[in-house]
């Protein structure tokens, strides 16, 4: 038989299989469920607010803080250096360049623990590596970093270091979030540019 007919039949046959594929793998998680479960059960992908505060103070360029709350809440206050990806916008293709940065630690936070961990599980399940959750979210940040106080006569060096970290992070947080709206807008614009550069890509 003519080779052309053979190839045509082969391609049409594969096309029919493709047309009846039971689910669209592009929209589904890429990790297998046992892989995602063992990653989820590990404690390694949680960061405490003190760890995050230390990174913020250092202006660590290998991390990216991702605020999952709605834009209005984000504008009211956010941890210095974070970008806003509202949870409802998580699957927007625009953010793929952000999530796909393998060498940058992506740290998710919301107000509590639920949204951030759902987002973590979704992003990790989709196959993006190096994602973390700030344990306790902004509520824990306020409780620990913004409002904690040290009392008593003696203070150990360890406590002193912790206190210094929290104090500096508190100061940065207050300063940036107290800026008048116009200056804040400029500040966000500057961060957006940083964000675009990270995206890379062909555009």
């Amino acid at each position: 038989m003519d080779a052309r007919i053979k190839y045509s039949l082969l391609l049409v046959g594969i096309g029919i299989i493709l047309a009846f594929l039971p689910y669209n793998a592009t929209d589904a998680f890429r990790l297998k469920s046992d892989e995602l479960l063992s990653k989820s059960a590990s404690e390694e992908n949680y960061l405490s607010v003190d760890q995050v505060a230390r990174m913020v103070n250092k202006e660590d360029s290998t991390i990216m803080l991702i605020d999952l709350r709605e834009t209005a809440q984000f504008k009211e206050c956010n941890i210095p250096g974070s970008i806003n990806i509202p949870f409802s916008d998580l699957l927007n293709p625009w953010w793929e360049g952000t999530f796909n940065q393998k060498k940058i630690k992506k740290i998710f936070y919301g107000n509590g623990d639920q949204t951030a961990n759902c987002a973590w599980a979704i992003v990790t399940g989709l196959g993006y590596k190096n994602s973390f959750v700030m344990k306790g979210g902004l509520n824990e940040w306020f409780k620990t970093v913004m409002l904690s106080q040290f009392r008593g006569e003696k203070i150990t060096p360890l406590e002193n270091a912790l206190y210094e970290t929290r104090f500096n992070a508190r100061k940065a947080f207050t300063q940036i979030n107290s800026l008048p709206d116009s200056l804040k807008r400029q500040y966000f614009k500057a961060k957006e540019i940083k964000q675009l550069k990270l995206d890379g890509g062909c555009q």
Partner: peptide
């Protein structure tokens, strides 16, 4: 339509075009 269905349509169109 799903990408698979579109692939099938394109393959049929291609074979017809050949």
């Amino acid at each position: 339509v799903s990408p698979g269905v579109f692939t099938l349509l394109l393959i049929i169109a291609a074979v017809a075009m050949f």
